[in-house]
Structures are given as C-alpha cells and as structure tokens.
C-alpha cells in the first residue's frame, strides 16, 4: 500500500492496475456517505432492541417497545367502529322517509349499504343490483317478496330458502322432471303462461296449445301465481304478467322453468350484521330505483334471541 501511485490531477491513489495505458482511480467513499452508513448500522442495532425484529422458532423477538401492527390495527378498527356506532344506532331506528329527510343519515346509509353490498351481495346480484339469470335484479321494480324497506329488510334477515326458522320459503314443483305433467302438458302450460304475459307479442304463443294449457294452469299454477298470473308476494310467487323472467325469457327457458321448478337460495344475514347495517343495506337496495313506499308497519318477526352485534376480531365480522 505504501507506494501506490497518486494521480497528479485529483491527488487520489490509483488502483495500481493498468489496462492499455488506462489507470483507475481508487477514489475512497465520500466521508458523508460512509458516516451515514455507520450511523445506519447503529440505528439497525437499536431497532433490533426496540422493535420486533428476529424470528426465533415459532415466534420472534418482541422488542422492548412492544410495538405490534396487529394490535394497532385492531385498535384502529375498534375506534372506527365506536366512531360510527352512533350513526348505526340512529339508522337502526329510522324509517325510509326519516332517512330520506336527513341528508347526513342518507349519505351514511348509502355509503354503508354500498360497501356491505359490494362485499356480500354483489357476487350474485351484480354491481348496482344488475342481477343475473337465477339471481333477481334488485334495481328494477319487480319484487318477489315485496319491495318496501321493511319487506327488503325482512328478506335480508331471514333469507330465502335459508336455514333461518322463519325463512322466506316457496317451492315451485318440478312439473316435468317429477312427472306431474306430461311433456305435452308442460308445452301447453308454457304457451299459456306466455299468452298471459307481456311477452306474448314477442313470442307469439300457439293459441290452440295455450287454450289447452289454461285448464292445467288453473288447476296446477293459479293457487300461487293467481288466476290471472299476477303472482302473490305472500308466498313468493312471481308475477307472470310482465316480460321479466328470473330464469330467462326465451320460450325454451320459460318451458324449462315449468319443467324443473328451480328456486335459488339466499342466506339469512341476521346473524352476520347488526340492525344498523341491515337497515343501511335494505335502504341501499331500496334506493336502487325500484323501492316501494312502506306499507303500514308490517309485523317484523324479531326472534327473541336477537344476536348481539358482531364483536371485534371475529373472523367473519364485516369491517364496517
């Protein structure tokens, strides 16, 4: 090291190598950089002592400050919940018109409803309640079980064909599959159903077949769907007069429904959400465009054992 050559211009040592007449400066690290590097090493050691740092077996060194992101997040979520609790409380006791009259509450209900809908409902019912074959459109004005705020909320609470004791329950027989009707009869009753619907101009039903089907309809279907096909919300029988079809509006799809009698399942959400969240969700769906005014207060069946609002930290609790 003693006789390394010094460059005359910069006064810096060279590396001592030479390639085709080129020499390389052995410029030392800038002092400021070096000191920052040393300081970083010191900071790292201090960090190991203060903060969670080293993995040991199944655990890790906790650090003397006891810092934990998990605890902080739980605390933050808890703080958020308690900050929003009064609004949920107000929401739980508000009617549709009361919500609409209070811009703050309305904004809150909309935002909370949209958030929960996006997490739990959108998968089947589609963004904005667009629906999908077999999953009802929520944005339109056709309701199988009722479109008032109370009706929607009750459907949310008990579900449809769900495991709730009071669940909304309807069962259309599979007339074809279970041989309740012959294939010819299914054809005929399909033509009749088309003839009493708004689809008749579109699908041009076979008048003779429809006339044969009418008797079968009155015998087999009218009990639920009504003599004129207006449907009955109390038993969850959809109206057959419009041109909106849960399982598709082509002749084949309508016939297939008569044949198979399909019915979907919606879970009961009562145990999952507290009253405020359910009200927000119902309001959000109600406001999609097809919500109906509240009937005189319907007897909302509230089970004696209403579950407590979900506690913090439960894995299945929605983050509100």
């Amino acid at each position: 090291m003693a006789d390394r050559e010094r460059d005359s211009v910069s006064g810096t040592e060279t590396t001592g190598h030479e390639w085709d007449g080129l020499k390389e400066l052995d410029t030392p690290l800038p002092r400021w950089w070096l000191y920052i590097f040393y300081a970083s090493i010191v900071v790292a050691v201090v960090y190991w002592v203060l903060m969670p740092a080293w993995p040991i077996g199944n655990g890790y060194t906790k650090g003397v400050l006891g810092f934990s992101d998990r605890i902080n997040v739980t605390a933050d979520v808890g703080a958020l919940r308690s900050a929003r609790a009064p609004m949920y409380q107000r929401l739980a006791n508000a009617s549709a018109s009361e919500i609409a009259a209070d811009p703050e509450l309305q904004e809150f209900a909309r935002a909370a409803g949209e958030s929960v809908f996006g997490d739990y409902c959108r998968t089947c019912h589609g963004a904005g309640g667009a629906g999908a074959p077999g999953y009802p459109v929520l944005a339109d004005d056709v309701w199988i079980w009722g479109g008032s705020l109370a009706d929607i909320e009750h459907t949310l609470r008990v579900g449809v064909r769900a495991d709730h004791p009071d669940t909304r329950m309807s069962m259309m027989p599979a007339f074809g599959r279970d041989r309740l009707l012959t294939s010819q009869q299914v054809d005929d009753v399909t033509e009749y159903a088309i003839s009493i619907s708004a689809a008749s101009s579109r699908l041009q039903p076979d008048r003779a077949a429809a006339a044969r089907g009418e008797a079968i309809y009155q015998e087999q279907c009218a009990a639920c769907h009504g003599a004129t096909g207006a449907g009955d919300r109390s038993v969850g029988a959809p109206s057959l007069n419009d041109d909106l079809w849960l399982y598709g509006g082509s002749r084949e799809e309508i016939r297939r429904q008569v044949e198979m009698g399909r019915g979907g399942v919606m879970p009961s959400w009562e145990r999952r959400f507290d009253a405020g969240t359910l009200r927000a969700l119902a309001y959000y769906v109600h406001e999609m465009g097809g919500g109906e005014p509240d009937a005189p207060p319907a007897p909302v069946t509230t089970p004696a054992a209403t579950p407590e609002p979900a506690q913090n930290g439960q894995p299945n609790a929605p983050l509100r």
Binding site: G126, A127, G128, G129, A130, G131, V137, A139, D140, D141, V142, A198, S239, D242, D243, L244, M288, G289, G290
Partner: peptide, 18 residues
C-alpha cells in the same frame, strides 16, 4: 351515468337509466 346495470327494464316494459 351509472354503468352497472347499464339499463333496467321495468315491469310495464319501460326502460330506466340511473
């Protein structure tokens, strides 16, 4: 304009956009 659903068909055959 609400993009989802792009339009909604109502019971009386009319069409709604939001």
């Amino acid at each position: 304009r609400d993009r989802s659903p792009p339009f909604v068909r109502l019971a009386d055959g009319t069409v709604r956009n939001d």
